[in-house]
Design a protein around this nucleic acid. Sequence first.
DNA 1: GACAGAATGTTATAACATAACAGTCTGTCT
DNA 2: AGACAGACTGTTATGTTATAACATTCTGTC
Lengths: 171, 171
Amino acid sequence: MDSSRTASAFAAPDHDHTACVSRALADAEAHCRAHGLRLTATRRRVLEIICQGHEPAKAYDILEQLGRAGRHPAPPTVYRALEFLLDARLIHRIDSLNAYVACVHPNRQHSAQLLVCSSCEQVAEIDDPQIQAVLDQGASRHGFKVDSQTVEIHGRCPRCRAAQGADHEGA
Amino acid sequence: MDSSRTASAFAAPDHDHTACVSRALADAEAHCRAHGLRLTATRRRVLEIICQGHEPAKAYDILEQLGRAGRHPAPPTVYRALEFLLDARLIHRIDSLNAYVACVHPNRQHSAQLLVCSSCEQVAEIDDPQIQAVLDQGASRHGFKVDSQTVEIHGRCPRCRAAQGADHEGA
DNA sequence: GACAGAATGTTATAACATAACAGTCTGTCT
DNA sequence: AGACAGACTGTTATGTTATAACATTCTGTC
């Protein structure tokens, strides 16, 4: 566990975010090269924008950021890039927020569980094999064959809990 | 386990759906009475429309069905009814589909897990305490305090698996 | 029957997403 | 190089989902 990560999977506010983004982009490039996928300028730029924060990015905000560079692309440009990145498993869509976050894990099995802080809006991705296993078991107990799981857990991250008073910790 | 339910939590095609709907509405009425909530005509009607099938209902489809009765309400009418029903925990919203299903369980703890068949579109709700527990554990291992969970599992229900060939069953 | 608060009606618009078709780029084959 | 196919992007228009804001009506209470 290196210093850029807390034990909580949430990014520390003082982490080296530039390095964090570079790593993500380099990782994405390697991944695409290895799989014969074309990480074009637009796609790369969209991924970069999404990586900018650990908060989820909304499609039209991404669009607006793309527009800053002189060109003013239309919605399909963004949605197509998002579709590519989703298919390449480089990002996740958060259905409950209509927003997108970068996939931070090197293993791209992609049945992630997302912890969404309702206070600071940060998202942490956990790939808990036990959760997956229990979900699979639960589903197959009902004769159901799982294709994909969407697990979005809303609540408060450790940082916000500490900042806003631990007295609210009912459970 | 009575004859109107399969072991799979998915409704059998030959179940007594009229009774199924009546039961849901009566249950909802009792619940509202007990909690001082007003299940008005519109709200009741929206719930009835949602109960009509075990498939998820979309807001604008509900709107259209409401319109069949001569009146032609605007979107806010439906969304307000949906909000009420969600708050009262009588329905669930399926984020990955932008759709709504009736909550079929008498216990209204409401951290349900939903099995969504991508073939027949039916939805089954399971309230698996083990899944909840594991999610809670997984989250708190990261210092995260859970408020609400959204678990949507997409795949194929037992009926569709049987109908469309068991040869696809990889796992 | 006047009042307060809840519920609904109404109009307009915001927010999210895609269809359809035209044009451009990239690599490959000859 | 030139022609071609397929992938990618641009552009216009529109579809889908949801809410803000304000007017009106309903319901129960004093």
